[in-house]
Amino acid sequence: MSEDKAARRKIHWKKTSRLTYIVLAIWFTFGFIVPWFAKELDAFSFLGFELGYYMIVQGSLIVFVLLIIVQNMIQDKIDDEYDAGGADQ
C-alpha cells in the first residue's frame, strides 16, 4: 500500500467515524431524551395528538428511518471521494 493511499484511508475512516458519532447523537436524542421528557412534551399538541405520545408512537420512528437513509447517502459520498465505494448495487 502506497503512502498516499494509506493517508487517504486514514482520512476516510476519520470522516466515517465522525459521521457515525453524529448519527449516534441524533439516535440518542430521539431514542432516550425525547421519551424521557414525554410528560413535559405532552403539553404541546401535534396533528391532534399530544406531542410526547406522538413522538413515541410515530415521530421518533420516522426520524430513525430518515436517519439511516441520510447516513447512507453521506457515507456513499465519503466512500466515493476516497475511492472506497466498491461495486455499486
Binding site: 457515525t20 448519527v23 449516534l24 439516535w27 430521539f30 431514542g31 421519551p35 413515541i56 408512537v57 421518533s60 420512528l61 430513525f64 428511518v65 436517519l67 439511516i68 447516513q71 447512507n72
Partner: peptide, 14 residues
C-alpha cells in the same frame, strides 16, 4: 416500539 426500531440505527452505524 422505540427499541425495536431504534436498534436498526445501531445495526447500520456499527
Amino acid at each position: 416500539i422505540i427499541g425495536w426500531t431504534g436498534g436498526y440505527v445501531l445495526v447500520n452505524a456499527l
